[in-house]
Every structure is written in structure tokens, then in C-alpha cells.
Design a protein around this nucleic acid. Structure first.
Length: 362
DNA sequence: AATACGTGGGG
DNA sequence: TCCCCAAGTAT
């Protein structure tokens, strides 16, 4: 490129006109930028918007997060996924209150020391909140650069990373990192999309090597995805005296700290009911009466595709002691209070179907 | 370096 | 239904 900043300037001009009106683009407060960037990790804008609005209403500043607790923070995050982000947000908020008077810190080193803040998010905060001249590299930037330069190497290889960072740095318009970085990402989100890219409306198509060569759909070069492991599980909506038993998952691993219905994996050769009886004996130390099947829910997690077989169960005899052997704690709750606990999405779907069932008591 | 970590939307 | 994937981080 004769003038590397030419691309940057064209992107910035395009962004000024074509940017979406998003809630975190109102004032670029460091707190708002931080929260939105954490929510946007591996998550699409459309999914984030309602969560961001609800979050900012309940937690208007760092101090309000720090004064809350992990349980409530998880509840506000329920349904967004990657729940470590929420637990880290809470930890980082406490850290900011302790060390930075409740302000978002302003140096890369300080930012990287916050749990949940890595290279991308640190750069995003520095540029969007403080307009510091640093480039960002996210999935959008990778894709846009890989196409503009027609990068044939794997995008995650050392060479791929180096080339993307070099281009993003070269094109950066000094003093306009806030606009420039968002322009690159916005272009990736709206025009230079993974599938069906809108090349005719691209402001920099004249610079695009992949467009010229007809390789747009082949860029960037990514490794194939591993297939999801298929599993069957059985879960119990266990009733006693008008209450339902739920348990809180232990720290570490999938859905740490979230609540769920008891149950577990159906092993080879087991029927769902057999598996459920076994799991409840192992997890709760009780025998229960398994009644009717109340739901069959399919759901994909990070590496599993789960079919959840749900059964209404009754503690028999009523009132006997249940011990949470596999969970951090167990609790009998009024079904009307189920909205006060953070559940994984598949469990929440089951709860919703429960509440639509007439005479279910829920 | 490779793997774990969620979810909902679109084709 | 199935497959793809989206503003990454931690270990």
C-alpha cells in the first residue's frame, strides 16, 4: 500500500455513516466499554444488547458490581453463556475497588491483570474508552485483513497472527483508534461477513486482494471444527410438600456455581428411568418415585449435544432427608422462586415448559 | 499448544 | 434437523 492510512481513513469515514446505534456507543465510559467488551467475547451483538441494558440498570458502576455477589451476577448473566466471564467480572470489580478507587485502570499492564481481560479486551478498552493508539485483533479483524491481503496461511498460525497485527497497526489512523478499530470490526460484522459477504457495498473493495482473486469465501483459512459429542441425560423435577429440589454446582468446570435439577448421564444399556433412579441414589442418597415424563429437550453446549429427558418425581416417604453428595448445596424451593436462581439454558427451558403445564403446581 | 468454556440465530 | 459460527480468556 502506498499510503497505509488511506484504508484506515476510508474505513473511518464509512463507520461514521454506517455504524449501528448501540447502547455502549453512547458515551464510551470506561465502565460501559469494559462490561460490553466482556459480554461481546464470542457473542453476537444482538444477543448482548438486552443483557447489557439490564446489567447497566442494575449495576450502573464498578462499585455496584463489587457490592453485589457472584450469585446475583450469574443471575444477570443467565443465558449469555461462558459464565466464567460473569464470575471474573465480579472478581475484577472488587479488584478495581480495592486498587483503583472503583475506576477502570488505564494501562495495559493493569488491565491485563484483571481476570477476564486478555490481549483483545485490554486493547479494546485502551482504544474505545481512552482513544489510545492501539490496534485490536478480534475475529472480525482477522477476517477482514485475511481477505484484504488474501492471506493463505492458517489465520491462527504464528505467521497469520503476525500479518494481521501488522496490517491492523499499519492502517491505524493516528488519534482515531476509537473510530478506526470499531470500523474494522463493524465492517466484519455487517459487510465482510463469514458467509455471503456484501462485497459490492464494501468501502475498501478496491483494495481487496481476495475479491480480485475470487478467494473471498476461502479466507480466512480456519481449522475444521471438532464434532460435538452426543450424550443423553435424565433429570428429575423432584417434588415434596409443594417444593422442588435444586442443587448448586461446585466451583470449577462447566456451569460452576449455577443451579440445576439433579440427574445425570444415561449410560449404555440403561433406560432413562433406570439412569435417573441410579443418579438420584448416588447424588442424593434417596429412592424416589419416578412419575411421568414431562419433557425432552435438545441442547448444544460447548462440546456436547445433549438430549435431556425430564421426569416428574416424588420423594417417598415424604420429608426424608436428602443429602447433596455431588453438589455444593441442595435446596427445596417454591416453584415460584425458580426465577431467583441462575440455571443453564437447558434447565431454564425445562422450567419454562413446566410453568406452561396446567396443574403442574409450577 | 491444545483444550475447555455456552448460546441462539441464520442458512 | 444440521451445520456454521460470534467483539476471547484461562490454563
Amino acid at each position: 500500500m502506498e499510503n497505509p492510512q488511506l484504508i484506515g481513513r476510508e474505513l473511518v469515514e464509512w463507520f461514521r455513516v454506517n455504524q449501528r446505534d448501540l447502547p455502549w456507543r453512547r458515551d464510551y465510559s470506561p465502565y460501559g466499554v469494559w462490561v460490553s467488551e466482556i459480554m461481546l467475547q464470542q457473542t453476537q451483538v444482538a444477543a448482548v444488547i438486552p443483557y447489557y441494558l439490564r446489567w447497566m440498570e442494575r449495576f450502573p458502576d464498578v462499585a455496584s458490581v463489587a457490592a453485589s455477589n457472584e450469585e446475583e451476577v450469574l443471575l444477570y448473566w443467565e443465558g449469555l453463556g461462558y459464565y466464567t466471564r460473569a464470575r471474573n467480572l465480579y472478581k475484577a470489580a472488587r479488584l478495581m475497588v480495592e486498587r483503583f478507587q472503583g475506576e477502570v485502570p488505564t494501562t495495559r499492564q493493569q488491565l491485563l491483570a484483571l481476570p477476564g481481560v486478555g490481549p483483545y479486551t485490554a486493547s479494546a478498552i485502551l482504544s474505545l474508552a481512552f482513544n489510545r493508539d492501539v490496534p485490536v485483533v478480534d475475529g472480525n479483524v482477522e477476517r477482514v485483513v485475511a481477505r484484504l491481503l488474501d492471506l493463505g496461511c492458517p489465520i491462527k498460525s504464528a505467521e497469520g497472527r503476525r500479518e494481521v497485527l501488522r496490517a491492523a497497526t499499519d492502517w491505524l489512523v493516528e488519534g482515531k483508534a476509537r473510530l478506526y478499530n470499531q470500523a474494522l470490526m463493524e465492517l466484519g460484522a455487517l459487510v465482510c461477513t463469514p458467509s455471503d459477504p456484501q462485497c459490492p457495498s464494501c468501502p475498501v473493495v478496491s483494495h481487496c486482494r481476495a475479491f480480485r482473486l475470487g478467494t473471498v469465501e476461502d479466507r480466512p483459512v480456519r481449522p475444521p471444527r471438532p464434532r460435538l459429542e452426543e450424550i443423553q441425560t435424565a433429570v428429575a423435577v423432584l417434588w415434596d410438600r409443594g417444593r422442588i429440589y435444586i442443587q448448586k454446582r461446585r466451583a470449577g468446570g462447566l456451569f460452576a456455581g449455577m443451579w440445576e435439577f439433579p440427574g445425570g448421564k444415561i449410560e449404555d444399556g440403561e433406560s432413562p428411568r433406570q439412569a435417573l433412579a441410579r443418579e438420584l441414589w448416588e447424588e442424593l442418597g434417596v429412592h424416589v418415585q419416578i412419575e411421568e415424563k414431562i419433557g425432552r429437550i435438545r441442547h448444544a453446549y460447548t462440546r456436547f449435544r445433549v438430549t435431556l429427558h425430564a421426569y416428574s418425581c416424588r420423594l417417598r416417604p415424604s420429608g426424608q432427608q436428602v443429602t447433596a453428595r455431588a453438589a455444593e448445596q441442595g435446596r427445596w424451593v417454591d416453584p415460584r422462586d425458580l426465577g431467583r436462581y441462575a440455571f443453564p439454558a437447558a434447565n431454564r427451558r425445562l422450567i419454562r415448559s413446566l410453568q406452561e403445564m396446567p396443574g403442574s403446581g409450577a
